[in-house]
Each structure stands twice: as C-alpha cells, then as structure tokens.
Amino acid sequence: MLITTLLPLLARYSLGFDLVAGPDDTVTLTIIPRKVDGAADKLESGETRPISLTASAAEIDAELAKGEDGALGQLIAARKTLADQLAEQRQAAEAARTAAAEAAKTKATTPTPKPATTSAQVHAPASPPADAKAEEPASLW
C-alpha cells in the first residue's frame, strides 16, 4: 500500500525514506521528496518538506491501507495539487517573459514616428485690451 499511496509523488519527485524506531514500540516514517534527476525546474522549499508519521507499526500500516482516503493519501494529493499549480505558474511566468521579450524586440526594431507639427500656433496677447482698467481684474466677457 505504501508504494500505491506514493505514486502521485513519484511522478514528480524522487523519494527518500527514513525509518526510526522510537520509545514504546513507536516508529517514525519520514518521506523526503527530492528533485528528479534531469528535471529542469528548481523545487520550492514547500515541495521538499519531509512528510513524517509517528505511530505504532500497526497504526501506520492501517493508515497506509486506507490509500487515498487516509491522511497520508490526502496529504499527498494536496501536495500534488500544489505542485501542479506551481508548475502552471512557472509555465505562465515563462510565457509572459517570452512575450515581453518579443514585444520589446519588436518595439526596438520598429522606428518611432515623430509627432506632427501643427502650422497653426496660438499667440497670447502681449498687452491688455484697450478697455482694461488697472483696478479691476481682467474679464473674459
């Protein structure tokens, strides 16, 4: 049951195991996800966090017998979902980088048009109107 439960993780990671006997007939099983040889993507720290179970050997066997419905199976399914989301985000980020690089390349090779000059220019009056009075503010009407 252990290998069947771990198949979703094995598709993405290489797994290491550590089995330690503890006091009162307890056992600690630690599953350590690692980067698969030849994988291009760097793993996030959350992806490589070990999964650790501490219980009696019978309890661990019973939990593993539950398969996908057990706590380990649910944890592995959640990790797989998160890993899939991370992979999608990496692909989207790479696509965005590529698109931005292409847009910058296109913009750099396309000459920028110069703004058109207008022949009509507005001149501000140099002197106040003839009927303006010094003690009154200027009016537009």
Rank of each mutant, 00 (worst) to 15 (best):
residue 118 T to Q: 15
residue 119 S to C: 11
residue 93 A to K: 06
residue 114 K to A: 15
residue 117 T to N: 02
residue 84 D to S: 01
residue 119 S to T: 00
residue 108 A to T: 05
residue 86 L to M: 07
residue 87 A to L: 07
residue 121 Q to I: 11
residue 96 A to L: 04
residue 85 Q to V: 02
residue 102 E to H: 02
residue 103 A to M: 05
residue 110 T to F: 15
residue 94 E to M: 13
residue 107 K to A: 15
residue 103 A to L: 06
residue 106 T to Y: 03
residue 102 E to R: 01
residue 94 E to I: 13
residue 90 R to I: 09
residue 83 A to I: 03
residue 99 A to T: 08
residue 104 A to V: 00
residue 110 T to N: 03
residue 107 K to D: 03
residue 85 Q to T: 09
residue 96 A to E: 13
residue 116 A to L: 05
residue 119 S to G: 14
residue 87 A to T: 03
residue 91 Q to K: 12
residue 108 A to L: 07
residue 91 Q to F: 06
residue 114 K to C: 11
residue 121 Q to D: 15
residue 104 A to D: 14
residue 90 R to P: 01
residue 114 K to I: 11
residue 109 T to A: 15
residue 86 L to E: 09
residue 95 A to L: 04
residue 117 T to A: 14
residue 85 Q to W: 06
residue 114 K to D: 11
residue 83 A to E: 10
residue 94 E to G: 06
residue 108 A to K: 11
residue 92 A to E: 01
residue 99 A to K: 01
residue 125 P to H: 10
residue 101 A to G: 14
residue 89 Q to A: 09
residue 85 Q to P: 01
residue 87 A to S: 07
residue 90 R to K: 11
residue 114 K to H: 14
residue 110 T to Y: 08
residue 97 R to I: 00
residue 100 A to E: 10
residue 115 P to H: 06
residue 105 K to S: 11
residue 99 A to P: 08
residue 92 A to D: 01
residue 109 T to Y: 09
residue 96 A to D: 09
residue 96 A to V: 07
residue 84 D to F: 07
residue 91 Q to T: 15
residue 98 T to Q: 12
residue 97 R to A: 13
residue 115 P to N: 07
residue 104 A to T: 05
residue 85 Q to L: 07
residue 103 A to E: 02
residue 122 V to C: 10
residue 115 P to A: 08
residue 112 T to N: 10
residue 89 Q to R: 14
residue 114 K to Q: 13
residue 98 T to F: 06
residue 103 A to R: 10
residue 117 T to M: 15
residue 115 P to Y: 02
residue 83 A to V: 05
residue 110 T to V: 01
residue 117 T to Y: 13
residue 111 P to Q: 03
residue 84 D to K: 00
residue 100 A to L: 01
residue 88 E to V: 03
residue 124 A to L: 12
residue 98 T to G: 11
residue 89 Q to P: 00
residue 118 T to H: 09
residue 83 A to D: 02
residue 111 P to R: 09
residue 105 K to G: 14
residue 93 A to R: 08
residue 108 A to R: 07
residue 113 P to K: 04
residue 100 A to P: 04
residue 95 A to Y: 03
residue 89 Q to Y: 00
residue 110 T to W: 04
residue 90 R to L: 07
residue 117 T to C: 04
residue 96 A to G: 07
residue 98 T to D: 14
residue 83 A to L: 01
residue 94 E to R: 10
residue 97 R to D: 03
residue 105 K to T: 03
residue 95 A to T: 12
residue 120 A to P: 05
residue 117 T to W: 03
residue 85 Q to I: 06
residue 100 A to G: 08
residue 88 E to W: 04
residue 112 T to V: 11
residue 107 K to T: 01
residue 96 A to T: 08
residue 100 A to C: 02
residue 110 T to G: 02
residue 123 H to V: 03
residue 91 Q to N: 09
residue 102 E to Q: 14
residue 88 E to D: 10
residue 95 A to V: 06
residue 122 V to Y: 12
residue 115 P to W: 02
residue 90 R to T: 07
residue 100 A to F: 02
residue 87 A to W: 00
residue 114 K to G: 05
residue 109 T to M: 13
residue 101 A to C: 06
residue 103 A to N: 03
residue 111 P to K: 07
residue 104 A to W: 05
residue 95 A to F: 03
residue 101 A to E: 13
residue 113 P to A: 07
residue 86 L to C: 04
residue 107 K to M: 08
residue 91 Q to L: 06
